[in-house]
Design a protein around this nucleic acid. Structure first.
Lengths: 211, 211
DNA sequence: AAAGTCGGCGAACGGTTGTTTACTGAATGA
DNA sequence: TCATTCAGTAAACAACCGTTCGCCGACTTT
């Protein structure tokens, strides 16, 4: 049995993290599948061989980055869903939170957008699994809302996925905007709120007889 | 002044097309930015240097592929939008057409999905421009519909973009399904129709006072 | 204090890459 | 018919790639 917090382990974690950080930095302008092992270790300042002490593969580093990028979002989503207030401003808050999250984790989100349909299967699958997890949480949150009366579980799941996809779509739109262009940011946010309202109204009138 | 249809030109076009075809084939399982020039020419059966007779760049070949992939879609979209029938089955038809288009142009669509947020800027921009063109057409189609009364041009544009994004989203979902798994295809189609109905209902009730 | 563990290093491996060069030979136009 | 154009070639270039190897030296356990 070894200590989990020895100097050894700490130093190892440190260069592992340095690899992840440098990877994210380099991936801001290129694909995971075109990121070279040597290119990465050069950026960190370690020898190429050192890479293998931490990851067997570049794909493996990618999967680790997915966890780092999306892991902290679960808590955020849960927090948003917990506010059962059916009021209108929940849309505004959701969009604002999305904008802030993108602003604060720009490289992470860019990485996710790039690799969601990228060339590395293991990474694609990791992202898909994470997004499905989000959809699960959203679906659970929707299920307890009064507005969901009359919805079949399957249809509710589709609605949850629509919300998640919309969130991803919004995040990607924020990515295309320079972080300091307030006017453009507001335009994107306005469009996002508008889309969300359309969806919410559609949900509210789903069971209307005339439709 | 040279003939545009000489034997010379025809043969050149032929190997140019061979390069595009081979590119699409190889890009089914990898990124554009990780596709090697030699890898491509090897697949076609020409010398590496021959590539430069047709494209200055790999990025340039990518842009050409974007045109080939999305160019023929304009006509399809215009056709769908022309059916001003506000009836419910226009949704079913739209989804069916999307499914068929994906089935018939699988590698093209996969390429677009991969490179939409991929690592090659010129290609990203080409795709974005093409999608904006689609949104223009959809917006124009929506504008003449009675259901659009009371919508500002800006909001109508957002709605059009939502429809286009939804189409892309649906196409990407079809990509993840093996082309012969009828049950899974129908599941995706069902979800797509459901999402589109939610959006359409939201649109219809947009101006309701209670919302 | 001695023995063991293990993260990082330097060097070497065979192989691939993009690009340039001077060339050939068939289609072209006068 | 003869000169010209030009798509495609073969060869060479330096640069870079991922991966393996044995070794070192600091930390860790006994």
């Amino acid at each position: 049995m070894s200590h989990t917090s020895g100097v050894r382990q700490a130093q190892k974690q440190q260069t592992r993290q340095a690899l992840l950080d440098a990877g994210l930095r380099l991936l801001e302008h290129q694909n995971l599948s075109s990121l070279g092992l040597r290119e990465l270790t050069r950026e960190v300042g370690v020898s190429p061989a050192a890479f293998y002490r931490h990851f067997p593969d570049m794909a493996d580093l990618g999967v680790a980055l997915v966890g780092e990028s999306l892991g902290s979002l679960h808590a955020v989503i849960r927090a948003v869903m917990a506010e059962t207030t059916d009021s209108a401003d929940i849309i505004d808050r959701t969009v604002a939170i999305t904008a802030e999250y993108v602003a604060r984790h720009r490289p992470h989100i860019r990485f996710i957008a790039r690799e969601r349909y990228g060339g590395v299967q293991a990474v694609r699958e990791a992202i898909a699994a994470e997004l499905q997890g989000f959809a699960d949480e959203v679906a659970a949150g929707l299920a307890v809302q009064p507005a969901s009366a009359g919805w079949s579980p399957g249809d509710l799941r589709v609605l949850a996925e629509l919300y998640v996809d919309h969130m991803v779509m919004t995040a990607a739109a924020f990515l295309d905007v320079p972080a300091d262009d307030a006017a453009a940011l507001e335009r994107v946010a306005h469009a996002a709120r508008l889309r969300m309202r359309i969806i919410s109204i559609g949900r509210a009138h789903w069971l209307d007889p005339q439709d």
